[in-house]
Simulated assay, not measured.
Amino acid sequence: MEPFVSQVYFGDLLAGTDEAGRGPLAGEVVAAAVILDPRNPIAGLADSKKLSEKRREALFVEIQEKALAYSVASASIDEIDNINILHASMLAMSRAVSTLSIAPEHVLVDGNRIPPNLPCSAEAVVKGDARQAAISAASILAKVTRDRAIVEAAEIYPEYGFEKHKGYPTAQHLEAIRLHGITPIHRRSFGPVKKILEG
């Protein structure tokens, strides 16, 4: 059975936005914004974390083909360390919405906070990535983009196993940090990394 996702539109220009990568110890936080086309629906949209990698990759392509507009943006590791991950996530989402090729009339934001400096009205939707199609689409674009970036980092730093844990604080990842130290893509402000650095 396909996951149920409601679709409520403010005209045709309702954007959804979501981020990926708040929890990992490494890598940028990535956000996406999507304006879906109500005349060209996409079946099977759901919270990106509930979909298989294969399904996410297929939807990633379909969203780009069928959406009226989409944008992907990020906040850097330095920004995460300087302003904290929450504010960096808000910044990334604001950047994604602001760089859409079509200006949205309204934005649905996953979670319980609204990023600052959005170009239109907005509302926060708790568990929105499972409830609103535009947010689901944004979550898929953000997660696939971030996962691809961290897998590329695995080729540069093979001893850390980024391709397996995607930067999250698994036992393997923490042990690799203890053995090899940190890389330029590690978030120094995050507790487990900070603790090892202060060692």
Rank of each mutant, 00 (worst) to 15 (best):
A103N: 00
Y160L: 10
S189Y: 09
E123G: 08
T183C: 07
E53M: 08
D147H: 06
R39L: 06
G16Y: 04
A103G: 08
L118R: 05
S136A: 15
H180T: 09
L174Q: 09
I114F: 05
D147T: 06
R131L: 15
L118Q: 04
A58D: 00
D37A: 11
A142C: 06
I140M: 09
I185N: 10
I140R: 05
S52C: 04
T17F: 01
D110W: 02
F190A: 03
A15N: 06
P158R: 10
T99F: 02
I42P: 02
S52P: 10
E123V: 03
I177M: 14
E155S: 13
S6C: 10
A153C: 09
A138Q: 02
A43W: 00
P24R: 00
C120L: 04
N112R: 13
Y70C: 07
V151N: 11
Y168H: 03
T17K: 02
R22Y: 05
S121V: 08
R178E: 15
E19C: 03
G128T: 06
K49W: 06
P38L: 02
A154T: 12
H180Y: 15
A137N: 12
I185T: 11
G44W: 10
V72Y: 06
I156Y: 04
L100D: 04
K54A: 13
N82Q: 15
A149E: 13
Y70H: 14
I114M: 08
V126M: 12
R148Y: 03
A33R: 05
A33Q: 03
A33F: 07
A133G: 15
P169K: 05
K49R: 04
A33S: 14
A142H: 09
L91I: 00
S6V: 01
Y9L: 13
E65F: 00
V72F: 02
V72E: 04
E53D: 15
I63V: 06
E105T: 14
I63S: 06
D47K: 08
F4A: 11
E155K: 15
A69Q: 11
V97M: 01
D18M: 10
S98K: 13
I177G: 04
R95G: 00
A171R: 15
A142V: 11
V29Q: 07
E28C: 07
R95D: 01
E53A: 14
L118H: 10
S136K: 00
G167H: 08
F60K: 05
R178Q: 15
P38E: 01
P38N: 03
